[in-house]
Amino acid sequence: MREVPYNDIVDTVARLCMEANYFLGDDLLTAFRKGLDVEESETGRDILGQLIKNAEIAKNEQIPLCQDCGFAVVFLEMGTEAHVAGDIIEAINEGVRRGYTDGYLRKSILSDPVKGKNTDDNTPAIVHTTLVPGDKIKITVAPKGGGSENMSEVKMGKPADGIEGVKAFVIDRVIRSSSNPCPPIIVGVGIGGTFEYVAFLAKKALLRNIGERNPDPFYADVEKELLAKINDLGIGPMGLGGRITALEVFIETHPRHIASFPVAVNINCHVARHKTAII
């Protein structure tokens, strides 16, 4: 058993919250630049140019890329041979509290969905914990903005829907989302599992980097086909018309019950934030 100090968790989460909000992934910047070559709409090209400049300013000045610094969604992969003295969830929340306060990040969390007030420190985090072999702890912080999260959906489809049903649902969800989730978007798709698990799969799909295909060639092809179809919709950057509506479609799957066909779409904006550390 390896002992991991409580404060290592706190410090790491605080740092990841800030880095995720200041530093856009190089994969996204490359995708914006490639988008400039493809985009036919002048407005669309202006917007992509603004996104590149925005990322430069945020990085150089260490200020948030977007004022919506998101819900702090944390993926925790806990090695069963690692031990943290104290409550690791509280350590994560302390990290979020410190990261959002010291990093001048916007606090957007209400303590209760109906009766609540702002918690003023962006806690609590949403923590997805998985136990894995080994003595390492892997932490990914993926701040999620409200505008794109609101355009997400779970559908309990029929097994007869098949992959064509999945494609139709994804396309329809993107059309109905239109300009709201800040296109160009990243589309996370979950297929299979149960009602709650399929939503988790769609969220987890958003952790991949641009260009990272599903290892199963069947789903890799569906990802490519959906991306092409979405970019034929004409929605374009910020929904004002154009070629670049989505930068990626990522599919994650899980075995399913013979009676069920769950599908989930979790949409991310172009500020697709996720930063990982291994302790």
Binding site: Q50, C66, M238
Partner: peptide, 13 residues
């Protein structure tokens, strides 16, 4: 008017 969502650092200038 539409402003560019997610370009918050740039816009603040």
């Amino acid at each position: 008017f539409a402003a560019t969502g997610g370009a918050a650092a740039l816009i603040s200038k």
